[in-house]
Simulated assay, not measured.
Amino acid sequence: MEKQHKTKAIYHLFGTTIFISLAIASFAFCVICELKKSKKKELRIDGELCYLPQSQAFGYGIAALMCSSIAQIAGTGLFIYCRRSTDFKSSKTSLASILLLLSWASFFIMIILTGTATSMNRRQAVGEGWVDGVCYLVKNGVYIGSGALVLIAMSSTLMSCYVMINKSRAVHAQVK
């Protein structure tokens, strides 16, 4: 029984470490994107036509999207693992489920913001632009906002696991 508990603790620690590492990497990539995004001085205008070269933020944005997606999936797996390993079958898991739902909501908003901003940092050819032949630049703070949403998603997922584990411990303490 003790060996099984240690194995569960190791899996939990390993999953949490991977989840936190990927979320922090995604946040870091968002910060780098904010620094490397296309600037107004890079925009070239020829009459009504515009040209914007691809910035480094495009690659970093893709990396941020990949890290946050894998982190969100790993975090949800961690939540499921916490729920299954607690032997806690009650309707009191609603707070943990709401926190996980908040995590997914902030993740989806982050994906939309980062994906759109990243596609705007791709090369915008003369006469093609980003949409309808018009060149667009990403506003200041979009990537930082996406990074904040990554941190909110990570915190919500970790809190949902914490709620599950603590509710389980409280039930086991009352039973003893």
Rank of each mutant, 00 (worst) to 15 (best):
S85E: 13
Y60L: 02
L78M: 08
C50L: 01
G59N: 09
K92Y: 14
R83A: 10
T76C: 05
T86A: 15
I73V: 13
A74M: 11
C82P: 00
T76N: 02
K92P: 00
C82Q: 12
C50R: 04
L52M: 15
C67S: 14
Y60E: 05
Y81Q: 07
T93Q: 10
G75Y: 01
S90Y: 09
F58Y: 15
I62T: 03
Q54V: 05
C82N: 12
Y81T: 02
L65F: 10
L78I: 02
S55A: 11
R84F: 10
C67A: 15
A71M: 04
S85Y: 05
Q56D: 14
S69D: 03
F58S: 02
I70A: 12
L52S: 06
Y60N: 11
T86H: 11
S69G: 15
S91P: 04
L49Q: 12
T76E: 00
L65W: 06
S91Q: 12
P53S: 13
A64T: 05
Q54C: 08
G77F: 01
Y60F: 15
I70R: 07
Q56A: 15
I70H: 06
Q56G: 15
F88A: 06
A74H: 00
R84L: 13
I80W: 03
C50Q: 10
Q72I: 05
S68M: 10
S85G: 05
F58P: 00
S91I: 04
Q72K: 02
L49Y: 11
P53G: 13
I80L: 14
I73M: 07
L49T: 14
G59V: 00
S68G: 07
F79V: 03
C67H: 10
Q54S: 12
P53V: 12
C82G: 13
G61A: 08
Y81W: 12
G75I: 00
G75D: 00
Q56R: 11
T93E: 11
F79S: 03
S90H: 12
K89D: 09
S68W: 04
A71D: 06
F88K: 08
T86E: 15
R83N: 09
Y81D: 01
S91K: 15
I80A: 07
R84A: 13
Q56K: 14
S85F: 07
